[in-house]
Design a binder for these strands. Structure first.
Length: 552
RNA sequence: GGCUCAUUGGUGAAAUGGUUUAACACAUAGCCCUCUCAAGGCUACAUUCAUGGGUUCAAAUCCCAUAUGAGUCACCA
């Protein structure tokens, strides 16, 4: 019995003429140096930050080279796929402004001429190539059960030899076609395995975009090509898809390095042009015991893309952070090109970190702080409104009701060469400005702490004297002069240098006085510029809040 | 266990055989400025690049061994 006859028996309704696919998906007509890259996740739930990083880089490079970035859904494992998985991925991507040129839009729709972009819809293509491989003697049906495979592994472990289905261990490899046909006709379950021509002692070299040359043994394992459900395994699907979709650059996590020999072998056997590979370091985190480990979706909230939305960390800041992790020369580039779009940055694979980066939330927050500080108050307001609409409805309604007032608050010490950097995220803003709103200002719940001045009578005296004789908010200098006069009248030093020289001459100094006023107005001893706050509060509210203190 | 990769300060890292007594950024500490805070300015923070050998006039940079960490060895991706 010939291979062809066997192949026809296995796939009677599939054509092994793969040239139709070659014609259907021709080489792309793109300018010299254009990169075609892709993001190929499984729909297993929300996107991991590490995946987002590779997705981001994958989308970034085509943009700077006039190439194509596409999305392919790898759902060949029915057990892992979840409902709405595709929608979740697309949402995470669009939330991070990662736009695809081609690919799946949802379970049924897609854009681009190289589809379908969902692997479960490409079954026939894979089977067609599998059939061809059987005809050419590079693949065969394997009837081993799970138990038999386990047994082989046990024996190998016992003998301390390499584990896997290869060489003499591959029981079904040397079955005769007659025997194969007989078992198929008998209805035995089977899968399609590669008849690997590899020799373990020989080496293959991966010329990695980020790591340079890596030498590995050839693959000699008869890996599974097609599972018993008729769908391909990752390796087979990857090779066929990225060839047919004319991918030029495959960017993926470093966990894939060790399967490169398989991919290389498959590309050779199928006579496909191999794409370039870039293996990115994994995102790490220090765990409770002080050792490094992979950032885990299950254990670490910050591994989830949704975490940043909940916190209100600007997408742009996360992108900037991701780029600083991804490319070591990005940070200095950004430093001097803040006004330019991120896509102007020339991404360099050689500048990609080879070891896994520690994910540093602190640094991200700092980047976020800087980023927010450079926005206009109006933009901050807009983003804050959008954020609170979803995560803090009460505050959302409040700032919407007081739009201009809120913008004024957000503008405090903003329009200057070195703006304040108070807010590390939109979720953080309320903590900084809640006291500006009467609705949130509930001093009955709070203990005032006036710091140095503890005497209630003295506090009342300061506040009363101030409001009666020295209150003024027309001009910052006059305002400050008045505070100084208040100090002089009550026996506090209005000049700090003088106070430092002769502290015994005074009851205290100007900072004690401003602290009393500040705490009375805000309950906090640390706030932005007091003058600005009073100006926005206005005399009515200042008086009211002073009275609240007096009541005590 | 086999194979593979990695290892520079608290963190991200630069440097790829010689202007390095290791850049820059975050964090930390101190000082200055100052109505508080934040910001900003200044200063401090690895005599040393996991350890041990070797090559070289010269090594964080090349080689070997050891240690540690990571990844991978599925009809998962």
């Amino acid at each position: 019995m010939t291979n062809k006859e066997l192949a026809d028996l296995i796939y009677p309704n599939i054509s092994s003429d793969v040239s139709i696919y070659e014609k259907k998906y021709p080489e792309r007509n793109l300018p010299e140096g254009a990169v075609v890259s892709r993001f190929a996740p499984s729909p297993t739930g929300y996107v991991h930050m590490g995946s987002l990083l590779t997705a981001f880089i994958s989308s970034f490079v085509p943009k700077t080279t006039n190439g194509v970035f596409f999305l392919r859904i790898e759902d060949t494992d029915g057990k892992r796929s979840i409902d709405d998985g595709v929608a979740g991925i697309i949402k995470d991507l669009t939330d991070f402004n990662i736009n695809i040129d081609e690919g799946a839009l949802d379970e049924h729709k897609s854009i681009g001429a190289y589809g379908p972009y969902i692997q479960s819809q490409r079954k026939e293509i894979y089977q067609s190539y599998a059939k061809k491989l059987i005809e050419d003697g590079f693949a065969y049906p394997c009837f081993c059960t799970e138990e038999e495979i386990d047994l082989i592994r046990e024996k190998q472990e016992h003998k301390k030899t390499r584990i896997g289905y290869y060489g003499a261990w591959a029981k079904c490899r040397d079955l005769s076609n007659e025997e194969r046909a007989e078992r198929i006709k008998r209805g035995d379950k089977f899968i399609i395995r590669l008849k690997s021509p590899g020799v373990f002692e020989k080496k293959v070299i991966l010329n990695d975009l980020v790591r340079g040359k890596i030498e590995m043994p050839e693959n000699d394992i008869d890996i599974v090509l097609i599972k018993s459900d008729g769908l391909p395994l990752y390796h087979f699907a990857h090779v066929i898809d990225d060839y047919l979709m004319r991918t030029t650059h495959v960017l993926r996590g470093e966990e894939w390095i060790s399967s490169y020999p398989i991919h290389n072998q498959l590309f050779n056997i199928l006579r496909f042009k191999e794409p370039r590979y870039g293996h990115l370091g994994l995102l790490m985190k220090i765990d409770e015991l002080g050792s490094r480990r992979k950032l885990s979706k299950r254990k670490d909230p910050e591994a989830r893309v949704s975490y940043y939305h909940e916190k209100g960390i600007p997408i742009e800041a996360v992108k900037i952070y991701l780029l600083t992790l991804a490319n070591s020369n990005f940070e200095s580039w950004y430093e001097s090109n803040q006004d330019k779009p991120l896509t102007d940055f020339k991404f360099d694979f050689k500048k990609v970190s080879e070891s896994g980066s520690l994910f540093d939330l602190e640094k991200l927050l700092n980047i976020s702080k800087n980023y927010i500080s450079k926005l206009s108050a109006k933009d901050v307001y807009k983003n804050l409104k959008q954020y609170t609409k979803k995560y803090d409805k009460e505050f959302h309604d409040l700032i919407e009701k007081n739009e201009n007032y809120t913008i004024d608050i957000l503008n405090i010490e903003r329009e200057q060469k070195k703006p304040r950097k108070d807010y590390s995220s939109y979720g953080d803003i309320k903590n900084h400005i809640w006291y500006m709103y009467d609705d949130l200002f509930n001093p009955s719940l709070i203990d005032y702490d006036f710091q140095n001045i503890k005497n209630k009578k003295e506090i009342t005296l300061i506040l009363n004297t101030y409001i009666e004789k020295y209150y003024s908010i027309d001009d910052k200098e006059i305002w400050f002069d008045n505070i100084k006069k208040l100090c002089d009248e009550l026996g506090y030093a209005s000049n700090m240098k003088e106070y430092k020289d002769n502290p015994e001459n005074y009851k205290g100094n100007i900072t004690d006085i401003t602290t009393v006023i500040r705490v009375a107005l805000t309950t906090k001893s640390m706030t932005p510029d007091l003058y600005e706050i009073m100006k926005l509060l206005g005399k009515r509210r200042v008086t009211e809040r002073f009275k609240l203190v007096n009541v005590e």
